[in-house]
Design a protein around this nucleic acid. Structure first.
Lengths: 156, 156
DNA sequence: CACGCTATTGCAACACGTTGCAGTAAGGGC
DNA sequence: GCCCTTACTGCAACGTGTTGCAATAGCGTG
């Protein structure tokens, strides 16, 4: 995975224009990519890669994991999707046009809660100002204890 | 990996008291655990699991990955270490008594910069107040563009 | 000190993710 | 419409991390 300097996000993901966007970068539009994009188009929000592979296989049984991963790289470069990592390091894909948001991941129960962009912006702006580090809220995930697990936690 | 509700961090990691701490929890002190702890004692700061396994094997060639992973779980529960995930999802161990800190990970060059606790505390306190989500800075890692990569980034 | 309970180990198998390579096919040029 | 370049695919192999299970061995008890 190599999330290099990406194009700016596509606000509304005009799915039908992705082929052109791909070709505009000197890349090629293939049946495998079409399959994946059609799956993504129906899966707005969060998905894991294994879910994607599964759905692709329903359409095209020959789908290969490595092709999916490589196509996801391409789509991330084009700004169509982004990803973060769950608590176990597994990828979580963010399919646009989901509103930009971060994640609060509970280390006990594994639940995920969205963190609206506004609530992180001050922090991220501070990072940019004080440390010249530019981060988007999409990549922000914070691990900790959710409300539920916290209240049921056994005090040592 | 199951970072359950952990004991409070040990401020100075009295390495020689870990056996007692392990036993106090009804757990057992074994040669394999002794090996791993002796390696950790020399590896303060950041380490990856594969580095640990490698060093353990230098001492005890029979070291098995699964044992290392399971012992790390135990040590995390005891508050001896904590971990976060690098950009590719790989684990990064934080061996105490490193000052609590988060990470800024560059998505282009992969470099890691420490984020002092103080710079994140306002944000984390807000999460706790507004969302009842309790997170420690140790688990905070933010992906983005570091200063270097940002200035050399090709504007689209 | 021997015994027994059970935490721990080591192994094997698996899931996720990445990478190298040879063959295939997209698509621009003629 | 055919050719040619080269991006892409599919495969196989690898590295990381997890899990089930039978055998082993801490360590508290009598």
């Amino acid at each position: 995975m190599n999330a290099r300097t990406a194009d700016p996000p596509l606000p509304g993901v005009p799915w039908d224009r992705i082929p052109g966007r791909v070709r505009a970068h000197g890349l090629r539009w293939t049946p495998q990519r079409a399959t994946l994009v059609s799956v993504l188009a129906e899966a707005e929000g969060h998905v894991t890669v294994s879910q994607l592979i599964e759905r692709c296989r329903e359409i095209e049984p020959g789908t290969t994991p490595s092709t999916v991963y490589r196509t996801l790289d391409v789509l991330e470069t084009l700004g169509v999707i982004s990803h973060s990592h769950g608590r176990d390091g597994r990828q979580i894909l963010h399919v646009r046009p989901t509103t930009a948001h971060g994640h609060l991941i509970c280390s006990t129960c594994g639940s995920e809660e969205d963190l609206p962009s506004a609530e992180a912006s001050t922090f991220l702006q501070m990072l940019q100002r004080d440390r010249h580090f530019v981060a988007s809220v999409d990549h922000l995930s914070v691990t900790g204890l959710c409300r539920m697990c916290r209240s049921s936690a056994v005090p040592d």
